[in-house]
């Protein structure tokens, strides 16, 4: 059974929010339909499903790895080549702090970039139905469903005031 992407286009946000409710009312699971906008609306404005993101874990994980690597790197090199100057400790803590801070930050940045690639679902290889008017302020409600349920989706979108229906 093949899956289709159905897009309903709206000019105003209110009917788009109604369409989200209508799709839920006819039995589509929240998470199978989404709203497309050219500007970020406040979270939950359309009653959309809000999935839990895990983006914050990436910089935290990267920072911990970077800190550990830096600690190992700076401590190991100084222990491997000990230089005693003025009776001070072998490990020069304040110079180590600079390197540890820098590697912690750099690892956090790299991990954040990697995290964004995962969490943004980019690049989007199967983008589904889309219309360029969305970047002009129109609002799209898009749903992925089986062929046999396309008719239900179209009816829900039209009954909510969709000005146009597109398929992909």
């Amino acid at each position: 059974m093949s899956s289709k992407s159905v897009l309903g286009l709206f000019q105003e946000p209110e009917p788009a929010a109604d369409a989200m409710d209508a799709l839920a009312a006819v039995g589509f699971e929240r998470g199978t339909f989404d709203v497309l906008t050219g500007t970020p609306y406040p979270e939950g404005a359309f009653g959309e499903h809000v999935p839990q993101h895990r983006l914050f874990r990436f910089p935290a994980f990267g920072a911990i790895i970077g800190f550990m690597v830096a600690l190992l790197f700076t401590a190991a090199t100084q222990i491997a080549y000990p230089v005693v100057s003025g009776g001070k400790p072998i490990l020069s803590l304040f110079a180590m702090l600079i390197i540890m801070y820098e590697l912690t930050m750099l690892s956090a940045v790299i991990a954040t970039v990697v995290g964004i690639i995962f969490e943004s679902r980019l690049p989007n290889l199967k983008p589904g139905a889309y219309d360029p008017r969305i970047t002009e302020g129109w609002i799209g409600v898009v749903i992925s469903c089986d062929d046999e349920r396309v008719r239900d989706a179209e009816l829900a979108l039209k009954s909510s005031g969709a000005l146009e229906i597109k398929h992909a």
Binding site: G38, F46, E48, H53, P59, E119, R121, L122, P123, G140
Partner: peptide
């Protein structure tokens, strides 16, 4: 890169702007 303006993409955008 295939940006469509889904809710997940906008939420992720806010997060990454904050983090970067």
């Amino acid at each position: 890169r295939g940006w469509r303006g889904t809710d997940v993409q906008w939420r992720s955008l806010r997060m990454r702007i904050g983090m970067f």
